[in-house]
């Protein structure tokens, strides 16, 4: 579904590349998390998948980015809308402001795509239910909490039925309650097995909970690619400026203190930690 072949990209007037010789294949239905320190290239990768690199930010892109069979560089943003959905950090800026209720806000993308009204109704009802917003359908979008606004942003993009959903740190500007709300929606999405999702995220505990696969970026390069359990428990994580989950840290401390035997698989989720310490 997503194919990156030797992709390098530099922002205009930047001295070092934001993406450096990146090659990766993501099959349909996979929930793929992208982790890495600030400035590692996560956001740039997200922008490249949605076509904003290079169509919005300009700059120099080499290699091939292909999403759902479309060559991003040869396409246009208008063409990509509806094929790739993008959700980013700031919930407020993702609300158009041109619609006065949650329901109308979700409809905005469908209206632009010319979806018939009857079909719009069904799709909106379904997606509001999915995102847990059904009870808020008639509320003004700006009256919602941050977590609700972010779920609205996700719903507004999902309702367009993109082939690929890209989320760029969707919870970094939310409080813990809002983050939990958003991750609950993402977990439900991961459970469907139909959606192809790329999630750039710093909160590794959530990544561990439902990602099928984890990519680690460091200074624009892909430095690790594998299952969440392997990657997140790896001792290399700290070298890339990432903090292991509290479960992994607790387990390591227990090993260092001689409470647990060395060599056991380190836990990355609460369930695994319970098993590890049992």
């Amino acid at each position: 579904m997503i194919r990156l072949d030797r992709v390098s990209y530099s922002y205009p007037r930047a001295t070092s590349p934001a993406l450096n010789d990146l090659s990766v294949d993501i099959p349909a239905g996979q929930f793929c998390a992208v982790i890495g320190a600030n400035g590692a290239g996560k956001s740039t990768l997200c922008s490249a998948l949605a076509g904003f690199v290079p169509h919005f930010y300009r700059g120099r892109l080499t290699g091939t980015v292909e999403v759902a069979g479309i060559d991003i560089a040869a396409s246009s943003l208008a063409e990509l809308a509806g094929t790739v959905g993008l959700v980013f950090s700031n919930p407020f800026n993702q609300i158009t402001g041109a619609r006065f209720s949650v329901r109308d806000e979700v409809a905005f993308g469908l209206e632009n795509m010319g979806v018939p009204r009857a079909e719009m109704e069904t799709r909106i009802d379904y997606i509001l239910q999915f995102a847990g917003l059904a009870g808020l359908a008639e509320r003004p979008p700006f009256a919602l909490s941050g977590g609700q606004q972010q779920r609205l942003a996700i719903a507004s993009v999902l309702v367009m039925r993109p082939r690929v959903l890209v989320l760029d740190e969707p919870t970094s500007q939310l409080d813990p309650v809002g983050s939990r709300e958003v991750f609950t929606v993402l977990r439900d999405l991961a459970a469907t097995d139909e959606a192809t999702v790329v999630l750039a995220e710093q909160k590794l505990e959530w990544v561990a909970a439902f990602a099928d696969r984890v990519l680690v970026l460091h200074e624009g390069r892909l430095v690790a690619d594998g299952l969440p359990g392997d990657i997140l428990a790896s001792p290399d994580l700290q070298r890339y400026g990432l903090e292991p989950t509290r479960y992994t840290r607790a387990a390591r401390a227990a090993q260092a203190a001689g409470l647990r035997p060395e060599g056991d698989t380190l836990p990355v989720t609460l369930e695994q930690a319970a098993e590890f310490f049992a």
């Binding site: 943003l77 509806g82 959905g85 993702q94 609300i95 993308g109 993009v157 367009m160």
Partner: peptide, 10 residues
């Protein structure tokens, strides 16, 4: 960007 994602320029 958010408007483009929502097919505004289509």
């Amino acid at each position: 960007i958010a408007l483009e994602v929502r097919a505004f320029s289509r």
